[in-house]
Design a protein around this nucleic acid. Sequence first.
DNA 1: ACCTGAACACCGTTCAAGT
DNA 2: ACCTGAACACCGTTCAAGT
Lengths: 224, 224
Amino acid sequence: MVDSVETRERRPLSRERVLRAAVELADREGVEAISLRRLGQELGVEAMAIYRHVRDKDDIVDGAVDAVVGEIEVGEPSEDWQAAMRALAMAARSVMLRHRWAPAVIVTRQNVGPAMLGQIERVLQILRRGGFTIDAAHHAVHVLGSRILGFTQDPFNDSAQASGPQPPPDEVVRAFAPYPAVAELAVAARHDGALGGCDDDFEFEFGLDLVLDGLDRRRASASD
Amino acid sequence: MVDSVETRERRPLSRERVLRAAVELADREGVEAISLRRLGQELGVEAMAIYRHVRDKDDIVDGAVDAVVGEIEVGEPSEDWQAAMRALAMAARSVMLRHRWAPAVIVTRQNVGPAMLGQIERVLQILRRGGFTIDAAHHAVHVLGSRILGFTQDPFNDSAQASGPQPPPDEVVRAFAPYPAVAELAVAARHDGALGGCDDDFEFEFGLDLVLDGLDRRRASASD
DNA sequence: ACCTGAACACCGTTCAAGT
DNA sequence: ACCTGAACACCGTTCAAGT
């Protein structure tokens, strides 16, 4: 045993250890309980020592959220895209039920960590393989959003964030190298910024009409 | 002019005045900016004076949210339930775009103020008049949820809240007198608590399948 | 009756100082 | 190199005291 749990858990303060403590604390007492001082206490260290390993409190909360998203289990997706999406959604849900504070926090922040990006990549791949065009997959990601998946922010998201000097496409591709489907989408949606830069009004109405259609179909089938 | 804007706006501190200041402050600087001290400053009063008119900070935030929800304009709903729901959703959206901090806050808190209750009542009436059964309307409210309407909390909501000694049905009806459709639903759903007491797993899968079906239909129509 | 001052137990964050 | 003490500018909330 080269690296026992004990040695990994004890001594050297690390970003990972801080984030793990934050998740556990939030699980026990809610996100509100997360504070530098409290976390220090939990880790047997003075609060200020934590600043050596994280930028600030927001960094801790974002990191804790991404750690939670990272817990979502991911077997090889089924061939049937609906079955694959359903399995992913249920897996996401069971994780969020273990960390009930997480969905609300995800919805508040617009930070997208690597785990979240990984899940978005997974969703896009399932959809693309299922025959969705880039555009259709894009809209689908929005509809599935935080409500169904618990790991995408969105509601009334002001997509104005992604303005400013835009990096050239190839740079975008390089940054998103581990996430090819996300990169593909980012480039495709480039007319108004990489990812998140999209027509909010359209996405909203797309989701709205999808839901209204679905409800109407169920209403009809129930009253038959 | 019996009650000019000046006299209404100035002098006597009131709950309404506090909430209005809170909404304005959040609009300008985000929810984070809402604090007793800051609000006092804004109102030209010492922070502690505010406690005469609100219970605590949570009361202020909940009140501010309900005030925002109250801004949603509500003409006489169209005969066609889909058109009526669409109009309501768009009205809700435009309000939430004026108060971008609100949706995230709504999602966090499980408090349901009178304005929110009024909107739920409206939704239920539209659906019932559109031919939905109580059950179907119930599921519809969940699906429309915070994502579409911006004024219903829900995501991964632990419905365990409504346990404990249950008031008799007629008392529920009395409390919900101004909201007959909500009352109807509350009584109908009483097997596990008035409103919010419902099978979360079922609601989740209902919404999930509705969205997946809708996406599949659109994917198909796009690739034809 | 309504507002205030002072106090308590907390925050996030910085930075010079310790080892 | 890594952690700490002390400090700053904030929090929510209570309560005795002022008018």
